[in-house]
Design a protein around this nucleic acid. Structure first.
Lengths: 332, 332
DNA sequence: AACCACGTTCGAAGCGCTTCGATTTGCGGA
DNA sequence: TCCGCAAATCGAAGCGCTTCGAACGTGGTT
């Protein structure tokens, strides 16, 4: 194994000088810097990560806590993961995976063992049991999600309220004056805060602001429920020409039901979905997606900020992105 | 921070004794072992991972190289990832993520920097450019995939040949005597070896062995191609009562086309797919899936074997698993 | 000519752990 | 009673790196 001493000898300098070239912790004259770099290259030197971590008490590894709940969209998670890894590499850090089932104990093990410098925690619930642990873990953490109380934390999420509003704005600008909203199952709204409520709130207030007629209803993940809800919407908003759907599980059925009611999509009813991009892509629907790449990148950036001892805002909301799709509609 | 010295003092022993309790590298009397364990618990001691890695030249971390090609099934990848993480934890190891775009350089960095003890590489192509690197990396690696030459490597994959045969066996046992095979795009077969060929080979020889009439055709990922291929199959095998589909991208269209030709599925034509489970689940099709969990687990086990200095077979093929689904058929 | 200040570089002391030879202890046998 | 042996434990030497104070040279200043 090539060590820093080998490099130092080869370049004719002290080991500490090599270290300074590598870390940039002290100025090194351009001359020796070049010489050291050449020796490193030549000998194929790679610093020993463990030794580095021990001496500097920085591992340059961040922990990424994966969700393992049922019902999470695996492709979306995967997109998060890759964006976090990519962003981390740009800060010269690596990513260690932790599954959520390891829970608080797993977090403690990583943090206290100095295995990671900080954590990114995905899919944080409103009153996540890991929140207290994270607060007094002694290591910075960034949460992907929007818990009820963000004080003392650093959270990143999509601005769901803006997302709801964005759909209305888009449709209103196309001339729609009567817009329905088909949302998540009612139990989701019963839990008092959360992305579902925020989306709905954004939708409603945007409709109000624009003077657009609107009705919002929850839909259960069963065909008959969707059928009933679509029927009710069409009755309550007889001139409904657009529908915002925030319930990816039943999106296909919504389209089927509209067609069954004799409405062509998008000619009679324009449908805008809030769902993963690939689903919208497959169904050829205009949509607002969860910007996984941007969220992951931002999370890493915030974590790096905190690792450098700087302050980070407790909550960062990313603006929604609406993708217009006008291709021929598909049912499956 | 609590160190091993603190624990030693608290338990009234030497640091080395604490180390022996922790690693089990030397016998410790039951008496002191208990006392040390209690001190560890009490003080909330977690060994410093870097110090450990430095002293023992073992990081207890394995690198997992993710594929980032277009067209890989993200949910399947995700399933691999979680199974690898879970299996690794059972061996008291953690998992570090590397994206394939970091390529050979990334592998070298991890391996030479002693950041990982070994690697699991996903989605290895037939003549993967990383193969030579892996062979002389100086650290054990296990590949998920089936490259052309496995000599000097350790590879794990589904036994695709058995998978093809399994479909025929299943259908033949149900009494089908005339079975079609709709495969991947022709370019996939043009590349000389690979899972597509192996599946087809297994299908063909099983059909031969069972005296079942069969025809196999490739299908391009376009509706018209699928339409044409289904038509041809029905013409060539007029008594075709079953179809094996090894082309998940066009599975939906296959069903549509069969229906368009007036064949009910599964009453007139039984369809067995080789595809991710969730797709088959959605379409309610009997299928053979890629056993991601089992593959991931096996990969980790093989890697641990090699890390312990033992030999591992160059190629491990896992038997296919056929899930029978008999629910009402769906098109989307 | 002596001195100071600054930009560079050096040397040595650890970081927290494992490991290996050395030391201690307790025990049975001579 | 003493010796020898094995089991249990200790102590010290590193693992490869960072970091800090000190030393070194150079150039400009008095």
């Amino acid at each position: 194994m090539v060590t820093i001493v080998d490099v130092a000898r080869h370049a004719g300098v002290a080991p500490s000088t090599v270290s300074y070239v590598l870390t940039g912790n002290r100025p090194v004259s351009a001359d020796t810097r070049v010489r050291v770099r050449e020796s490193i290259q030549l000998l194929g030197y790679h610093p020993h990560a463990g030794a580095r971590a021990l001496a500097s008490s920085r591992s340059n590894v961040i922990g990424l806590v994966l969700p393992l709940r049922e019902g999470v969209q695996l492709p979306v998670v995967m997109r998060f993961v890759t964006s976090v890894v990519t962003a981390a590499r740009q800060h010269d850090m690596d990513v260690l995976l932790v599954t959520a089932d390891q829970g608080a104990a797993g977090l403690r093990r990583l943090a206290n063992g100095a295995r990671v410098d900080g954590c990114v925690v995905m899919d944080v619930g409103l009153d996540d049991e890991r929140l207290p642990v994270l607060r007094e873990l002694g290591r910075p953490a960034v949460l992907l999600g929007h818990p009820a109380a963000v004080k003392g934390l650093t959270c990143v999420d999509l601005d769901f309220e803006a997302a709801g509003a964005r759909c209305v704005d888009h449709l209103a600008e196309l001339g729609h004056r009567s817009i329905g909203f088909l949302g998540a199952p009612s139990v989701v709204y019963a839990r008092n805060t959360g992305f579902a409520q925020r989306t709905l709130a954004g939708f409603s207030s945007a409709a109000m602001r624009r003077g657009v007629a609107s009705t919002a209803l929850p839909a259960e993940p069963r065909y008959d429920s969707v059928h009933a809800v679509v029927g009710t919407l069409l009755r309550e908003l007889p001139r409904m020409t657009a529908l915002v759907v925030h319930n990816e599980a039943v999106l296909g059925w919504v389209l089927e039901c509209l067609r069954a009611e004799g409405r062509r999509v998008p000619d009679d009813v324009a449908v805008v979905a809030i769902c993963p991009d690939e689903l919208a892509e497959r169904l050829r629907l205009t949509s607002v997606q969860l910007p996984a790449e941007a969220l992951g990148r931002r999370a890493v950036e915030l974590l790096v900020t905190k690792l450098n001892g700087q302050q980070a805002p407790p909550l960062t909301l990313l603006p929604p992105n609406l993708s217009v799709r006008t291709g021929p509609q598909r049912l499956s």
